[in-house]
Design a protein around this nucleic acid. Structure first.
Lengths: 209, 209
DNA sequence: TAGATTGTTAATCGATTAACAATC
DNA sequence: TAGATTGTTAATCGATTAACAATC
């Protein structure tokens, strides 16, 4: 095991895990670096190299036992436990996140929702009451929530991120299309559909009018 | 201008554009590769190198004129036009996408929503009637929609993607956490919050129980 | 002019892959 | 045993960055 595994490798592991989860569902017992590679559209050598950062998980001539490799990846990624999350911002996006059915089976669950709008506070989403942002820092600490989904408007994003860190949150997934600054050691990732779309339109022929 | 610009460069351009959009909003007239670099957390040399693939946009000693560089990037990315999009899947996520206010100002708009659920068809979201997936291929062709947001369950994702391609869609942004196969030349990107979260939990200390 | 910043080159750094001995 | 596939090495490939002449 390396002292430090490149981030680009870490970013691929969840994709391997996702593929293995699917195989487990289909009761597939064995796989190979080649099969995974074809499915994911990368090279088999890369998969073997990536895994070799963490140990030896396969058998020559046979490949990998699917449930075993899945468990190993879960352990490496620290998703062999259930992580509690907070959602901040109870707009359309916040609602969709709270109702998203894809978290539970993949080691995450939303345990709290916060907003600043007095009309929204007290209403419930998916059986969970929307709480005021004024109590957020305290609630995050009490609940020991370490992960937050940031679904507030751009103008509020940096301020809310500061509050999250104050509350002890250590990983933020921001849906606000703006660069956020966090202290060292706090994990930060972005989801911005427009960024993804604009990379694709580069390759599209513009519409001629 | 290169024959082929690396994809990794293309993927950064929308981030530059996003930063410039913010500067324009703040009436900032000039910027430099160094300022952009600090804001985005990358090196100034990388920004200059990336831009150099497409031309010379700055002035020595002065930097870049913000509105000019923004327009150039828009043109390069083909987002100096408004792209019509279809949303497939009118669940919580589909609703959030149709209602998302962040598209309009950044060159995209949702013009059609499709679902298979008879109870949903005919209902309207944001003033737009949900249409049946049975008419989707035809409608996509008629409306000349080239971009689709895929917000259907995993089990339907590949089939719906096939239909989208049949309908003439050339770029798909999929929210379904599964690998999709599309013909050569069709652009495909994924948004999976769990993949982003699982990369972050790698760096978090597991909760000790 | 003096200071600042670009665009570009060449060096460095890091990631990917081809190839194969080991071995199941 | 014969065939298959791993884990690993070394070579290749590509991306990043330091440095600086050009010049605004």
């Amino acid at each position: 095991m390396d002292a430090s595994v490149p981030a680009i490798v870490i970013n691929r592991l969840p994709l391997y895990l996702r593929a293995l989860d699917l195989m487990v569902e289909n009761d597939q017992r064995l796989t190979s670096s080649q099969e995974l590679a074809e499915w994911l559209g990368i090279s088999s050598a890369q998969i073997r190299k990536d895994l070799s950062h963490f140990g030896e998980f396969g058998k020559q001539g046979t490949g990998y036992e699917v449930p075993f490799l899945r468990d190993q990846l879960r352990s490496i990624l620290n998703v062999d436990q259930l992580w509690d999350m907070a959602v901040v911002g109870a707009g359309a996006l916040g609602h969709a996140l709270v109702n998203y059915g894809g978290f539970a089976h993949r080691s995450f669950r939303v345990r709290a929702v916060f907003d600043v709008d007095p009309d929204k506070i007290g209403q419930s989403i998916n059986g969970m009451a929307i709480e005021s942002q004024t109590v957020m820092v305290e609630r995050l600490q009490t609940m020991e929530i370490k992960i937050a989904l940031l679904a507030v408007p751009v103008r509020a994003a940096q301020h809310v991120a500061d509050l999250l860190v104050k509350g002890g949150v250590r990983a933020i997934l921001s849906y606000a299309p703006i660069t956020i600054t966090v202290p060292n050691g706090i994990q930060l990732a972005y989801i911005d559909p427009v960024v993804a779309l604009q990379s694709m339109t580069y390759y599209l022929t513009p519409v001629v009018t």
